[in-house]
């Protein structure tokens, strides 16, 4: 059912701004026909990564290709098969919603007016509404509609749900799912909203300080990352293969391990103190990777200690 071809491929992709690296030696393949969620802190390199894919930023080293063509030399034909929603839903405030359609129709041969109209009505935007006067959620709807109606094969969205209320967020997720259901359509979305990732994504890619930490099917990721609770405060845990996070709270230690094998489990069970495994939520699993070591323990304990 899933066509396993590659929509996006990067090899050793690296970007420096001055002496700071934004993306480091990133090699990955994003399969066609699936939804991939790109997750990471602010400043992790998500936007830079996306801009390089689209040929809007030049890699310092390495290469990337989209729909089989090098991103730096994309032909207009290939470009017209890519839909891109930049961060912040850039639209011209002086236009009316229907002018957006006229504008896009001139540029994109496969413009689907019916789809655009139905997106407008789904988000409750009248065709005569001035873009400068509609709500932020409606702006997201217009911008998603104007991109989806160009009938792209691949849709790339940079934090589209930023600042949206729950109703608009849900509408956005529904719109994206409707797009993804069509045969062979690929979605790459960067977001911080892990509930939306669970609803939307086939795959998850975790980016931290420009490094790709995880690139896996979402279900595999959830199964491969495992939590352990220990009824004792263990400040410096012994060498545990696959340990990615260790935190102590109030007489308890929470460990998180990735891809636990027999050796991992044996070395945790040796610690004793009622060591027991638990299935983590997606949020806990992602935080175990992304949270810096400085944020150990609970913030309330640190604040109390400071008084």
């Amino acid at each position: 059912m899933i066509r396993q071809t590659t929509a996006i491929k990067t090899v050793g992709l690296t970007k420096y701004f001055g002496r700071n690296s934004a993306v480091r030696n990133l090699t990955m393949e994003i399969p066609a026909g699936q939804v991939t969620a790109l997750v990471g802190h602010n400043g992790a390199g998500k936007t830079t990564f996306i801009r390089m894919l689209l040929g809007l930023a030049e890699p310092t080293r390495g290469r990337c290709a989209i729909l089989g063509e090098d991103s730096q030399t994309l032909s207009p034909q290939t470009r017209s098969r890519i839909g891109y929603l930049a961060e912040g839903h850039f639209l011209w405030n002086w236009m009316r919603a229907k002018d957006v359609a006229r504008f896009q129709r001139e540029t994109f041969p496969k413009w689907d007016q019916k789809l655009f109209d139905s997106m407008l009505s789904f988000f409750g935007v009248s065709p005569d509404a001035k873009i400068g006067q509609i709500s932020r959620g409606q702006r997201a709807g217009v911008s998603l509609g104007m991109t989806m109606a160009t009938d792209p094969e691949i849709l790339i969205l940079d934090d589209p749900s930023m600042g949206l209320d729950p109703v608009a967020r849900r509408a956005l997720v529904e719109g994206l799912l409707a797009f993804a259901r069509r045969e062979g359509r690929t979605v790459l979305i960067s977001t911080h909203l892990l509930d939306d990732v669970e609803r939307l994504a086939d795959r998850i890619a975790l980016l931290s300080n420009g490094n790709l930490l995880v690139d896996a099917p979402l279900v595999d990721f959830q199964q491969r990352v495992q939590g352990w609770k220990i009824d004792s405060t263990i400040v410096a845990p012994p060498a545990i293969p696959g340990l990615i996070d260790s935190r102590t709270f109030d007489g308890q230690t929470n460990l998180v391990v990735a891809d636990p094998d027999e050796e991992t489990i044996a070395s945790i069970e040796r610690i004793g103190h009622n060591a027991r495994s638990e299935q983590l939520t997606l949020e806990d699993a992602v935080l175990a990777y992304l949270r810096p070591a400085s944020m150990v323990g609970s913030i309330s304990a640190s604040l109390e200690a400071a008084q």
Binding site: Q34, V173, L177, R181, R199, L200
Partner: peptide
């Protein structure tokens, strides 16, 4: 699969799986 995915607002591959 399609109907349930739409109703639950989740990826259709999740229901198919």
């Amino acid at each position: 699969v399609r109907g349930l995915a739409q109703q639950l607002v989740v990826n259709h591959n999740t229901v198919a799986k």
